[in-house]
Design a protein around this nucleic acid. Structure first.
Lengths: 187, 187
DNA sequence: AAAGCCATGTAACCAGTTACATGATTCT
DNA sequence: AGAATCATGTAACTGGTTACATGGCTTT
């Protein structure tokens, strides 16, 4: 049994609801969009492997409009596996900020270009903030329906804080760029 | 010529100073620690390939105390390649928060465990904050020595803002956990 | 004496992306 | 009519990690 994170994302999601691979993709792309990602190239093979290890079971449902849906349900053994993983300390966060890679070598580029990278970073974060706010609004009215919603909310709140801090940094930095430009000097 | 990011990290660093593979590893681990990482398994093969493509040149320096140092210097063609890459828009940021993956499935675990994950996240971010503050202090006195230092500073400031926001989120979240525990209810 | 740093590198592996293939239904 | 969504999946590739190998010097 492989113990990569993809495995536990699937087990975790299936611990809430039986789902198809397609559903899982969508669930990750929405409620985990800020901090995780999974492609079909990971999902389908992992589902197959989890089934083989009896951590999930499959029900093939005939679908009149479209291909047959394969709905997966977590087993007792699957729940145990998930819970065991939860007790292990989390690895440290991994970040890849390609734009910072470009900015840190900014002395090799015209200031306008550096500014453009910062502006685009700002826009990406504003978009994330909007998405997170929308999730939060959707979540609020159903918060009492399931304990799991509280935990989803917590992850959204972190996404919001970080995006907000990122937008603020971008604003401050752009201001500095602007001041130096007005003065006619190089940064 | 491959155009993965490792290539441009090396070109960028070498655009500031001639360096060995070992130096590059250390430079990434310090000034880029917040937003990038490279292993020797990427560095040495990439250096070889960059040399073959004449974007960098190698000087073998005999080293009395230890193995021979291979110092790499960027060429004109290398600078051009770097600058061309800088003009391309940056890909969006990639984040992996394994602890959020554990937290989002927190309904499958005892509250103390979720709390522990948050506390460890907080500690990681406090450590980063300390490191960033130390970098900032080291940078301040030499800020005028080279334009590139300003750009390094900007990346440090973003790292600081995000870590600060993360610590604050952790504090707020832990407070909520504490309140619910005192009240005897489940979260 | 042992741990850690300096300094090189490779091979095997694991993680993750992308492009492709298929095809019906539903929305604009 | 065309685009998007539903729904499955694989193969080839790229990116990145880890473990190993080597060995002297320096610090505790």
């Amino acid at each position: 049994m492989k113990d990569n994170n993809a495995t536990y994302v699937l087990l975790g999601l299936l611990s809430h609801n039986p789902m198809t691979g397609y559903d899982i993709k969508k669930a990750v792309a929405t409620r985990m969009s800020y901090f995780w990602d999974l492609s079909y190239g990971q999902i389908y093979p992992t589902l197959k492997q989890l089934e083989k290890n009896k951590l999930i079971t499959k029900q093939v449902k005939n679908n009149p409009n479209g291909p047959t849906r394969k709905v997966y349900t977590i087993t007792e053994a699957g729940i145990k596996e998930l819970q065991a993983w939860l007790t292990k300390p989390a690895k440290k966060e991994v970040h890849k900020y390609e734009f910072l890679l470009k900015l840190i070598f900014g002395d090799q580029a015209p200031p306008e270009l550096n500014q453009k990278h910062i502006e685009e970073f700002k826009e990406r974060n504003q978009k994330i903030l909007q998405t997170m706010n929308a999730f939060e609004e959707n979540l609020k009215p159903i918060l009492n329906q399931s304990e799991s919603h509280y935990y989803v909310l917590l992850t959204i709140l972190l996404g919001k804080s970080i995006s907000k801090a990122s937008v603020e940094w971008a604003d401050n930095t752009l201001k500095i760029f602007q001041e130096h430009k007005l003065g006619g000097e190089k940064l």
